[in-house]
Design a protein around this nucleic acid. Structure first.
Length: 113
DNA sequence: ATGTTGACGCATG
DNA sequence: CCATGCGCCAACA
């Protein structure tokens, strides 16, 4: 069981209409937020390289993980189409203000034990 | 073993 | 609000 597998398993539990943050996922797994970002970044690489694992990574709702300020962190990457993450979230009912920020108080995934 | 790389987060100016 | 700086750590070459 690799670290990134633990990240994917947890991210899959984020329900539609909710979001989490790199920090929150990291805290739950005892990982640095950067490692969470690294694991999700890996999805984009696997997605464009290996077709064998594509079915696995496509099951991970990576778009539901945003940064602690409530904003999208993927727009500066050339891997991922501009505003793809935002569009996916909007389709799930997440609203963004004009500064591209969403209300974490409202949408943050609440952990249930 | 060693150095590098980040989808981060927080503190500070 | 913007800009650095730094700690963080799994994976990879």
């Amino acid at each position: 069981m690799k670290t990134y597998d633990r990240v994917y398993i947890l991210v899959r539990k984020i329900p539609k209409g909710k979001v989490s943050t790199y920090g929150q996922i990291g805290q739950m797994l005892g990982l640095n937020p950067r490692v969470v970002g690294w694991a999700l970044n890996r999805l984009a690489k696997v997605k464009s390289n290996s077709k064998d694992l594509q079915w696995q990574v496509s099951a991970v709702p990576w778009q539901r993980v945003i940064n602690s300020k409530g904003k999208i962190s993927t727009n500066k990457l050339h891997n991922i189409p501009l505003d793809l993450q935002k569009k996916l979230l909007i389709k799930e009912g997440i609203k963004f203000n004009k500064e591209g920020k969403t209300d974490l108080k409202k949408y943050m995934w609440e952990i249930k034990l």
